[in-house]
């Protein structure tokens, strides 16, 4: 999807601080010098095209009482699709990336409790027959920045 300068400014604005006021889209429009209808139309376009994955809240899973970890698996190249299907079937697996390393499958797993998190990992190991898994929970957070300067 082609986006113009106004879309970029709009994206920068709404990635950072979506207004907490009764008419947020009108407010955003005022900042950009366009009207509310245009803001809504541009947002709809970017959501429909998939450029905006979601417009809503992003939460601190730990503050919600959830437990999460990064996991890395050593997967035979020939088994990637099959193993990915097993891993991705878990709703708590939110990100899964192939990476160029002997540990080539990297995924994040989130669960409502430590017990459920451990159970998921155990089940993934059993279902895939792969025991070579690094469990790498965050011990300290130095930065998380999910908005991009456009």
């Amino acid at each position: 999807m082609k986006i113009d300068q106004i879309d970029r400014k709009l994206l920068n604005l709404i990635q950072a601080d979506f207004p907490l006021s009764p008419e947020p889209y009108r407010e955003i429009g005022e900042t950009l010098g366009i009207n509310e209808e245009e803001v809504l139309a541009r947002l709809k376009n970017m959501i429909d095209s998939g450029l905006i994955r979601r417009l809503g809240g992003i939460f601190d899973s730990k503050m919600l009482g959830y437990h999460s970890t990064l996991c890395a698996m050593r997967v035979d190249e020939k088994r990637i699709d099959e193993v990915a299907a097993v891993v991705n079937a878990y709703p708590g697996v939110t990100h899964n990336y192939l990476r160029e390393h002997e540990f080539n499958m990297w995924f994040t797993l989130t669960a409502p409790s430590k017990e459920e998190l451990d159970q998921c990992i155990t089940r993934i190991k059993i279902d895939t027959g792969i025991n070579d898994v690094l469990i790498l929970p965050a011990q300290k957070l130095f930065k998380i920045k999910v908005n991009f300067d456009l």
């Binding site: 709404i14 990635q15 601080d17 907490l20 450029l51 979601r54 939460f59 919600l64 998380i144 999910v146």
Partner: peptide, 28 residues
């Protein structure tokens, strides 16, 4: 509701309110 969302944000439960973008589509 607006006040409660503000409270959830100020207390770090809502880390961010806004858009999550596909950064691959934006040149990253």
């Amino acid at each position: 509701l607006i006040n409660r969302i503000r409270y959830l944000k100020e207390n770090g439960i809502v880390r961010r309110l806004g858009a999550a973008v596909r950064h691959q589509d934006l040149g990253f």
